[in-house]
Design a protein around this nucleic acid. Structure first.
Lengths: 207, 207, 207, 207
DNA sequence: CATGAATGAGCCTTCATTCAT
DNA sequence: TATGAATGAAGGCTCATTCAT
């Protein structure tokens, strides 16, 4: 009961729960209102004091980098899976796009994927940071696009640029912009985006 | 010489020139570094004091709304023209997209088209504001898309959403993001974007 | 073995050992970097939690007051001895100064002797605080100086002021300042200081 | 009257007066309570907002560096004069010490002369900073001491160390410490200090 | 009218201190 | 009793905005 290991475990659990609440709160607020949110706001939403945030995240920048990473780990897993499982190239691309967009839509992974944030985080390299979500996703897409082009199933064009264009629309920021611009009338937005991106790539639509 | 009317005229002219220099400076800086620029910087670049800016623009928000309007008046003209002159619908759409992108690329109209700014300006309605650049462009595109769909030359889909998707990629912000993400290697970025958008809409490419 | 008295005794011993480690750590850190050290640092160096420090020392101020006291108890003993053993007055003064300086130099008693700390501690009188190291040392020196003056072996002058002047140079703070100012080139700094102080007092140097 | 040059001059004058009030306030507060004073306090005492301070002094560090410089320009002049005018060495040393101490006492140049501050300022070199007050004074004293030693009018000893010892007691910080330690009873403190320093150097006292 | 110095609310961050475990 | 996570008051600094000149 007052076994030190037991105590430590409970402490750890509380700590982790707090950390998760912080990440969750930051995630939500960042998704809702962008990087302008205050640390105080994040703390308030998480039900903690600002100091609690700073205990684990050395700066606002780090917090948001962490949010980005944490929130999108699933996305990376799914993408990796899609990439590895699909052997048919157009299908593979379609899978990538759909999975990605589904993440953004359903898992509330409303985190800006654009490179400036990864860059900012890279400025204060906190040790073993993973290689940046944006870079990862861009790399995966570029690879897929190049392969598909080689097989002639999508139109030609610089794969790096095409990948960047896809991510631009697949980013949560675009999602937010679109929602705002459309005034909430966004019933089948996700499908439209996915289809738009696939068309943009010139994927044959056997569907 | 010191005719009061003469003096007044000269002052008027100075005023207008000042206003234009402010808009120009704000335009450039906003294009270069986004909304983070300070009023002081804008004033410095314009060669005036901050007070001079505030005389004509009640707030930073208003200044940038005005910049957006002013910088894009030409774009609207061109778009209107393209809309009116082209009778062949796919051509028309292509014209719209190309004209729009050319604006963004060549005229340095790197002003964020996304609705939040118009919205922010709307919060402080400064009298007879025109109906917002984003709204205008969106309306034009939506109309064109709807027409094209009716004629069966582009794929079906909610025209409002499709128009919003186009603008998302045609915005200067997207342009900046892409440039940054690609690390400057952006030779034929504009063409890629235009083609991506057209493909995204499902425009037949007779070209 | 689990005899309650035995357990209690062991706890007591742990407590005392903890307290000593805290004092030791605080001493070292305070000596190295002055009052800017954080409680967390002290705790880390001592290998305890911050709470453990606060259990015994109501505040940072108190901790450092205690450090001052503890670290310098030896110094007081030596001084007292010097005072009591030497009957020849100029010798006595010389002994005081040398002993004091040796403390500062060799025993790493680099604790600020100046009154502000005692004063701060006095603001939160924690019960039966001893009368403050600075006051003690000042009193000893003043006495010695007054005696020496009466015997005509040092020059006249307000003994209180002269004592304060001596302590100003004999303080660890002065030591640190001098080390810094001289850039480490401090081979025979201690001797210089001692001699300077003695000369300052106008002690005849039969040496 | 509304001649722009005239207007500008007045503005400039106000500005300068404000700057001086800031320096004055910072000087006083720094003298009274050390580096712990807040920028807010300085601003309050100066009768301005914090922003006004930051307009001219990029940081707290810079402000205090400036205070140090500004407050002590006179001291340097006097010292230089004393150094140049007195040909008789012991007199020269005495002049230096007395002048220095008079500065500290009467002109309220209660600025810390110790090197850490100069060092801090050097970390952010604000352009053409003079070579640091401490270094200057130390150099002057060291030179004087070495000369005097060569002439046999003061006792031997490392001139660098001896100079540092003098400055340690001649610093405003020492002055404050002494005042505090003596509880205000500091009638002829300045004379005591000067004499103590001269004796410390082993200057013959023909007086 | 133009100017730019002044203002001060508000942000990010630190750290002495408290308290649940 | 020991722990160290949590707290939150302050501090340094920025910048949109105002206003005396």
């Amino acid at each position: 009961m007052s076994d030190p290991a037991e105590v430590k475990r409970r402490e750890r659990k509380d700590m982790r729960r707090n950390q998760e609440r912080v990440l969750q709160a930051a995630h939500e607020l960042f998704a809702e209102r962008g990087a302008e949110v205050t640390m105080e706001e994040v703390a308030r939403r998480a039900g903690v004091g600002v100091g609690t945030i700073y205990r684990r995240f050395p700066s606002k920048e780090h917090l948001f980098a962490a949010v980005s990473q944490a929130a999108c780990t699933d996305a990376q897993h799914c993408l990796q899976q899609a990439t590895e499982e699909c052997h048919d190239l157009p299908t593979k691309l379609r899978a990538i796009v759909l999975v990605q967009y589904r993440q953004i839509k359903h898992q509330a992974a409303l985190i800006d994927l654009r490179p400036d944030h990864s860059a900012a985080a890279a400025a204060h390299p906190a040790g073993g940071d993973p290689p940046g979500l944006y870079a990862t996703l861009h790399s995966i897409l570029e690879q897929g696009i190049a392969d598909a082009q080689r097989q002639g199933v999508i139109r030609p064009g610089n794969p790096r640029i095409l990948a960047a264009l896809c991510l631009e629309l697949l980013s949560s920021n675009a999602f937010q912009n679109l929602q705002r611009a459309l005034g909430g009338e966004t019933e089948d937005l996700a499908e439209h985006v996915a289809q738009f991106v696939l068309n943009g790539l010139g994927v044959e639509s056997p569907r």
